[in-house]
């Protein structure tokens, strides 16, 4: 069990956990700012960004992917603003038009281009390929101390670890301005907090997290990782600090249970084949949100306010 687990399951589980946390952290603020749809938009526009970066560089190295995705996210934000102003339509519709068009463009580009040499095709773009991120060089827990085996870790793992650390570090560093400007933008501006830069920074951080999570869960299911853990966490507490803690816990639980259920669940139920880990992670996070809605200690707060 030990050696097989380390080789086949350890790295996918770690990548799933880190990707979930990296998305859940900015997700807390996106949900509180009622910008959850921006998370959706980002996760979609990341695809054409990645494809264009691949077509230009011919590799799937992290840096060009990140730049491509960040560029696509920036273009999307500009397009959304332009359409909103020129077309005078409501923000939701502008967002919907932009991200579906850019995503569709990404799918077409991907189909037309030769990506056979790398893990970049439509199916992976949609659902991720978490199960394939295995650590062939490992032959047991001792490999964790073996430099040769460690050097052969799937590159996605250090990449997502770096992104997760970056997102966590930025969240910590900018905690106060993020919190103040999310709660009361006018007051934040009156104190000299650059709220526009803060909100663009949040969108870019979310875009970077979305690219890094792309390997694990693809560009569609990542939206569940932005929204479900923070939304469930909101129902557990009335303090933002505690909410972010809960969202991290829910992100980890979703990733671990999702991976395990996808790999072993069908066998327990008498099925033959494992199911998509990304799909199962999103499903578990949705179930957690459902449970929080039913049993979360702060689920009644809106009703209380209404009777006030």
């Amino acid at each position: 069990m030990g050696s097989e687990f380390v080789m086949l399951s350890l790295t996918p589980i770690l990548i799933g956990i880190l990707a979930s946390i990296a998305c859940a952290l900015p997700g807390n603020f996106l949900v509180l700012r009622r910008q959850a749809l921006i998370g959706d938009a980002i996760s979609h526009v990341v695809l054409p960004g990645i494809v264009v970066a691949f077509l230009l560089t011919g590799t799937v190295a992290s840096l060009p992917m990140m730049i491509g995705a960040a560029g696509a996210a920036t273009i999307a934000v500009i397009l959304i603003e332009t359409i909103k102003r020129l077309g005078r339509i409501e923000p939701g519709a502008a967002m919907g038009v932009v991200f579906t068009s850019m995503f569709a463009g990404g799918v077409l580009l991907l189909e037309q281009s030769d990506t056979s040499s790398v893990h970049l095709d439509v199916e992976h773009a949609l659902m991720g390929n978490l199960e394939s991120l295995v650590w062939f060089a490992a032959d047991g827990w001792s490999s964790l101390l073996d430099p040769v085996a460690l050097a052969a870790l799937p590159p996605e793992l250090p990449r997502i670890a770096a992104v997760c650390a970056l997102v966590a570090g930025l969240t910590y560093l900018f905690w106060r301005p993020l919190k103040i400007s999310t709660f009361d933008e006018g007051f934040a501006q009156s104190m000299g907090i650059p709220t526009t830069a803060i909100s663009i920074g949040l969108v870019i951080a979310a875009a970077v997290a979305a690219v890094a999570a792309f390997d694990a869960v693809g560009s569609i299911i990542v939206i569940a990782m932005f929204i479900c853990p923070p939304a469930a966490a909101r129902l557990m507490t009335n303090r933002l600090e505690v909410q972010v803690g809960w969202s991290t816990v829910f992100a980890v639980v979703s990733a671990v249970l999702g991976y395990v259920f996808a790999g072993y669940g069908p066998l327990w139920l008498g099925g033959q084949h494992a199911v998509s880990a990304a799909g199962m992670i999103a499903t578990v996070s949705g179930v957690i949100l459902g449970l929080a809605c039913l049993f979360g200690p702060q689920r009644k707060r809106v009703g209380e306010a209404a009777t006030d």
């Binding site: 509180l32 560093l173 900018f174 905690w175 106060r176 301005p177 919190k179 103040i180 999310t182 709660f183 009361d184 007051f187 104190m191 000299g192 907090i193 909101r234 507490t237 009335n238 303090r239 933002l240 505690v242 909410q243 707060r301 809106v302 306010a305």
Partner: peptide
Amino acid sequence: DWDFPTRVIDVVLMGLYRELGL
């Protein structure tokens, strides 16, 4: 949005942001 997850004392502490910094 008064449904924001924060306590009364935390809102007042926001007034000290310029003193506290990042």
